[in-house]
Design a protein around this nucleic acid. Structure first.
Lengths: 198, 198
DNA sequence: GTCAATAGCATACGCAATGTATGTTAATAA
DNA sequence: TTATTAACATACATTGCGTATGCTATTGAC
């Protein structure tokens, strides 16, 4: 029981550091975030950080894994709510764009993440969002809705398109109007994947 | 004439700094590149740097503008070589993917650039690549080849897709095979933009 | 129950790197 | 001829990361 409480303490420490890091990275960016400030706001020092995560990049990885998991569940929800697999695929994409609009996700997952850790597909565990999209597309191919393409390649392209759309929307003066345009273009573009009923 | 030589000297200095910066940023990444090393290899000191470019970000901007211009011409070449506007559009996209495979372009334009300077569409001058794609799509809409969509939105999505494809290819174990897959999926995807001959 | 060992975190230090403030030289303008 | 400024170099101050070291409490051995 004492051991259990000890393990809980460690998890508490890690969770508090990750929470503070999410805030700091989102607000100041990865490079601009100070580890001293970070840990101080979590009620700790850099000692705790280097003990638990190795270095600054290690902390970013932990933050990214957490956000990635959250994005995964939200995409699954959007997907499962739809009536057909194809509509689920569309909603999944739109959900991705919507999430990518949140400053935290945009800054950490889309801008700093790739710059610091390299290509997302090489991130430690797995880029969950990408996997979901790949699986969804593969299912669409199997059921005959989508033409025969490499599912991972298509997922990659779709993700990139949605990502860029989100950056565009977020940087625009009228995000609402641009969002509508982007979604319309997105829905049009993915039609190319549909199997032509020759 | 003395004035002219003076102006030439300044341009020489700027050019040498930008050249050294391109090498350093490509090799070590923006954050990892040291301004002292940079300027020393250019035969100068940090004084010249801060006088001509303001700060480190200013230097990155100058580098990006140069690379952006180079990419623009290469895309135009690929575009103009094709026989039809639609084929030119496809070749333009493939050319972009090919360029994005070069480590220098990938690191500076696709990874560090957005992380440091924010969304490319907000970059000082203009993101030339994006403009070309937008114009090409608009021309396709005008000639009736492509269905009525927002040209800029479509260009954004296409660019993002190509960008992500390049990152994927570059990080893969077998770039050649993955490149083929990506291009195939790309060609399939953009078919969605074609006007259906109803 | 005592003692060694280690996990978890804090403190202290060294080093590198950016930005700024201050020179220095040469060209330009009055 | 002299004053001013552009173009760069040098010197300085600050910040911030990573590591080495120190402290405390828990665990395990006997």
């Amino acid at each position: 029981m004492a051991a259990k409480r000890r393990a809980q303490m460690v998890e508490e420490t890690r969770a508090r550091l990750i929470r503070a890091a999410r805030k700091a990275f989102a607000a100041k960016g990865y490079a601009g975030a100070s580890m001293d400030d970070l840990t101080a706001k979590a009620g700790l020092t850099r000692g705790a950080l280097y003990h638990n995560f190795g270095d600054k990049k290690g902390l970013l990885q932990a933050v990214i894994e957490q956000i990635d998991a959250e994005m995964l569940t939200r995409m699954r929800v959007a997907h499962d709510r739809a009536e057909t697999e194809w509509l689920g695929f569309l909603d999944e994409g739109v959900a991705y764009i919507e999430m990518a609009l949140e400053p935290e996700i945009q800054r950490i997952m889309l801008l700093d993440g790739p710059a610091v850790l390299g290509d997302p597909s090489r991130w430690s565990n797995q880029n969950a969002c990408l996997r979901t999209t790949t699986q969804t597309i593969q299912a669409l191919i199997d059921e005959g809705t989508v033409t025969s393409v490499d599912a991972e390649a298509a997922a990659r392209l779709i993700n990139g398109a949605a990502l860029n759309a989100a950056l565009w929307i977020a940087a625009s003066d009228d995000p609402h109007a641009v969002f509508a345009k982007a979604v319309a273009a997105f829905r049009q573009l993915v039609i190319g994947l549909l199997k032509t009923e020759a």
